[in-house]
């Protein structure tokens, strides 16, 4: 007993070392999965607030580009409003006001919550983006995130005022996408080295496409509506023995300059999920 005690004291530092390393390693391994505690991430409110402060400084230097972006978007919206007003005026005449059953019309299924990027990385193997909107703004886990240019990622964790997005630049998510012109779908995965490119898999040998073809979301998952730009084909090749092409995609979004995004709120999400779950069982 005494020798055991002496042994323990003598090597106490080694034991402490091993314990700390085991704790760290457990954290790393747990972190490999999709879900993770909010406590140890940037959606933790203290950390997020610090980033917000530092972001206000950096933001200042991006104002010009942001302005241009906004004004472009504004004009696009104005055009759309005029178009919709015209359509509305032709429709209102023959519409009856007796609908008792409230139903979200298909064109209003998706609503957008705009948010600001307050922390963003592109040079890690697993990148994350922190947004300045959270539960109180209506953001929930699994919502899709897009920018004006195209698909950004999916919401992973949410705290009261902040949320963390897994962008395409993280091998943990795969985006189901299709070719704009012939509707063949494939899975988009980031290769891990360059923030401008990702790989498209599952496109079979017989599918026809050419360089520069554009890729959009498929709409099969309920995070993204159909037809949001993902990227364009940059390069592709296929070996004699392979069944599937390996295709290099140039991503539509420039993740380095990302500053404003929109979170997609799919209003029928709950209903669709419940229905799908019922039929799976």
């Amino acid at each position: 007993m005494r020798t055991l005690f002496n042994f323990l004291i003598r090597y106490s530092v080694v034991f402490l070392f091993l314990i700390l390393e085991i704790i760290s390693f457990t954290l790393i391994v747990n972190n490999q999965g999709y879900q993770r505690s909010i406590f140890l991430s940037t959606s933790n409110s203290f950390v997020a607030e610090m980033y917000e402060v530092s972001n206000t400084v950096i933001e200042f230097f991006k104002l010009k580009a942001a302005n241009e972006n906004l004004s472009e978007e504004n004009t696009a919206f104005k055009n759309q409003i005029i178009k919709l007003q015209n359509e509305l005026s032709t429709l209102t005449k023959n519409q009856k006001k007796d609908s008792i059953h409230f139903r979200i019309p298909p064109e209003m299924e998706y609503q957008f919550i705009s948010a600001k990027v307050i922390n963003n990385s592109t040079n890690k193997l697993q990148n994350y983006i922190t947004l300045n909107k959270g539960l109180v703004d209506g953001i929930k886990v699994d919502m899709g995130v897009i920018s004006d240019e195209g698909v950004v990622g999916i919401i992973k964790t949410v705290s009261n005022r902040f949320s963390v997005v897994i962008p395409i630049l993280n091998p943990k998510i795969q985006i189901n996408s299709k070719f704009n012109h012939n509707n063949y779908t494939g899975t988009l995965i980031w290769s891990g080295d360059d923030y401008r490119y990702a790989n498209l898999t599952d496109i079979a040998r017989h599918v026809e496409f050419s360089l520069g073809d554009s890729l959009v979301t498929s709409g099969f998952t309920n995070t993204f509506p159909e037809g949001i730009p993902v990227g364009t084909i940059e390069d592709f090749n296929i070996k004699e023995s392979d069944q599937y092409y390996s295709i290099k995609i140039r991503l539509a979004v420039n993740f380095r300059t990302l500053s404003y995004v929109k979170v997609i709120d799919y209003l029928n999400y709950k209903e669709q999920r419940t229905l799908e779950k019922v039929s799976e069982n």
Partner: peptide, 16 residues
């Protein structure tokens, strides 16, 4: 780790 969303990674290397 907390600031860079990498639970445990830096802790492991630094303790080593």
């Amino acid at each position: 780790d907390i600031f860079s969303n990498t639970a445990g990674l830096h802790a492991f290397a630094t303790v080593l």
